[in-house]
Write a protein that binds this DNA or RNA. Structure first.
Lengths: 136, 136
DNA sequence: TTTTTATGTTACAAAACCTAACATGGTGTT
DNA sequence: AACACCATGTTAGGTTTTGTAACATAAAAA
């Protein structure tokens, strides 16, 4: 785990501070936890302790609630955003690999990109896509 | 405009057929139009006529409604999905690039994909079983 | 045409979701 | 102990979504 990740997940704030930071009531914060949009840590005395990540999530929740999105919708948006992060990271990786290719290969790819431009197809990562690289 | 796009946007079905195709009530369909999740065409006599695209949208709406997402949430998901489609397109393109690479380079990418997948979807892939394919 | 069926709009009510308000009791500090 | 802070539960009220009904118009069938 990286240092910044530790900093972002370290339990730091009691609920009173979080109320001030987010402009949410304690009731709201507990309600969002009850519905598993956040998972703050607990002290030995059962007090909630919130990390910076929790604060970020709560601010996003607040935004979406203000736009009328309900908790089920926020849950969906959060999980679809994780996928987005994944694809963005893959995209970064693909770019890196591409940088290591020869000009010749690059031209081939570029040409296929152009011919495929404007095509939107549903595709997700499946294990089957990788199976040919593994022996069973 | 491409031929398939014309086919997908051509007004074809009256609301009665759409009810059967989607298992939604007329009331629901009209309500979703009222809140601008769909925009079916109209005949001269003011009847709604739905395209294949409209049907797809309604099926997605139905799915999300079944999961408890409200209309504001669906609206957000639809607009965030446009971005998602773009990244999926890039992902698909990344796959194509990958196909043209040596297996050695491929394993590098694959490993980064697996660590990403493991971060969010621990149950679907067992990273441990595959680690023997990668050099540390 | 006349009759029947499908669809349009509007209004009212029920159910579910989210928040606020309050009560009761636990935790921690001084 | 006194006091502030926090946890949990209950109740009530506003909003969103859907069902239902009433009535008008369009399209199809007779």
């Amino acid at each position: 785990m990286s240092g910044s990740e530790i900093r972002r997940t370290m339990p730091l704030f009691p609920i009173g501070i979080v109320m001030q930071l987010t402009d949410l009531t304690a009731r709201q914060i507990r309600y969002y936890e009850e519905h598993q949009l956040i998972s703050p840590a607990r002290t030995e005395g059962n007090r909630r302790m919130f990390s910076l990540n929790d604060i970020d999530l709560l601010l996003e929740i607040k935004d979406l609630i203000d736009q009328g999105v309900n908790l089920a919708g926020i849950k969906q948006l959060f999980s679809s955003k994780e996928k987005q992060v994944v694809t963005e990271e893959m995209q970064k990786e693909a770019k890196k690999v591409r940088r290591e290719l020869s000009d010749d290969e690059l031209r081939k790819i570029l040409r296929s990109e152009l011919t495929q431009a404007g095509r939107f197809n549903r595709s997700s990562l499946r294990q089957g896509d990788m199976s040919r690289f593994f022996k069973s």
